[in-house]
Design a protein around this nucleic acid. Structure first.
Lengths: 110, 110
DNA sequence: CTATTCGTCAACCAATCGGTTGACGAATGT
DNA sequence: ACATTCGTCAACCGATTGGTTGACGAATAG
């Protein structure tokens, strides 16, 4: 049984690398094979394959075997989890900001 | 000059650790000093201090020197950036899903 | 059958991460 | 003046990360 924390760890970790974010962008709208995905990058196919594995572990993409080849496509759910976490805390951010001005003032004229 | 990619790297990296996410939760609503924050954790103050540094570098919190002590509080902006990135791609997720059923079908009855 | 293309596995590497301990400087309390 | 509290700095540690190369098995093409 995998905890919510572990899922969020994996999701945010997956998003914390620009190559992986770019791969997600590349997959926006259309699925693609590993080779296609790797071509534009100045990096071995192997490295891309590892990045895809990280994305898959986080639940951000799925891979489907297609005979010789392998198709990757975006998976729903994981990104929504990240979004939910952020949205939840953004409301605190906002509410704290309402009180922030007074807080700062109260300190600055000590 | 710090690139957008570097900012997002830092923000998502900061969010990828459950202790740091919890620290942000702890700061929800009220600022707190490093010692206060560290107390509930089974971890040295030093470790917490490092986590706070990561959060600060990502622009998620600010620290204000208060004489001997040090007050941490949430900072606006960074979380909004993460939110913006995710929101942008969620729309692709959704639109891709609309076409996914057909795609899967077209492959499965080959 | 043979050659090629696809992607992964395994081993390795330097760099970063997440934590520790110990020493320290700067403010505060007595 | 002295002791205490606050938090950081520095060094160290094992584990993980992000990349490499080389070998391999499985599917496809000639």
């Amino acid at each position: 049984m995998i905890s919510e924390d572990e899922r969020l760890d994996a999701i945010f970790h997956a998003l914390s690398n620009r190559t992986r974010r770019q791969l997600l962008a590349d997959l926006s709208g259309r699925p693609a094979r590993v080779n296609e995905l790797a071509r534009p990058y100045d990096m071995s196919v192997n490295a891309i394959s590892k990045h895809l594995f990280v994305l898959e572990k986080a639940g951000l993409i799925e891979r489907r075997q297609e005979g010789n080849s392998q198709t990757c496509l975006l998976a729903p759910g994981a990104l929504a989890d990240a979004d939910a976490w952020i949205s939840h805390y953004r409301q605190y951010w906002t509410s704290q900001l309402q009180g922030l001005a007074q807080f700062v003032e109260s300190r600055e004229d000590r």
